[in-house]
């Protein structure tokens, strides 16, 4: 959910000028915001599953330190979504384990 009205920061007037494809579904986003912000705004909180136990992980530190939030972005695995800005048309996938490069068998 987006924080549109705010008593101190005022109204958020940014336009949702971009769309990213998340596991095949279109998610509206704002160019330049972190991918994780666009996902959380759309209610998506599970970003990847761990290699051995398949347990879910999501945003933890929000500032690029913990690597809990990594996903496969445009075919590249292990991208920190909390510090990677949205570009229109990005393809974002829930990552399984360590992920695979797009050109890996």
């Amino acid at each position: 959910m987006r924080v549109v009205k705010h008593p101190i920061l005022g109204d958020d007037r940014r336009k949702r000028d971009a769309a990213i494809i998340v596991d095949g579904n279109r998610v509206d986003a704002i160019t330049g915001e972190p991918i994780a912000a666009a996902l959380m705004a759309a209610g998506i909180r599970k970003f990847r599953v761990t290699p051995r136990f398949g347990s879910p992980r999501g945003l933890f530190c929000g500032i690029g330190r913990c690597i809990d939030c990594v996903m496969t972005v445009d075919g590249q695995p292990n991208v920190r979504t909390c510090v990677t800005p949205v570009k229109d048309g990005m393809i974002v996938e829930t990552q399984t384990g360590l992920g695979k490069w797009a050109d890996e068998p």
Partner: peptide, 17 residues
């Protein structure tokens, strides 16, 4: 998540965690 992560989300990126 970290409280700071939540703070970053709401005040910088304007998204509720």
């Amino acid at each position: 998540m970290g409280a700071g992560a939540a703070q970053t989300m709401i005040n910088v990126h304007r998204v509720l965690p």
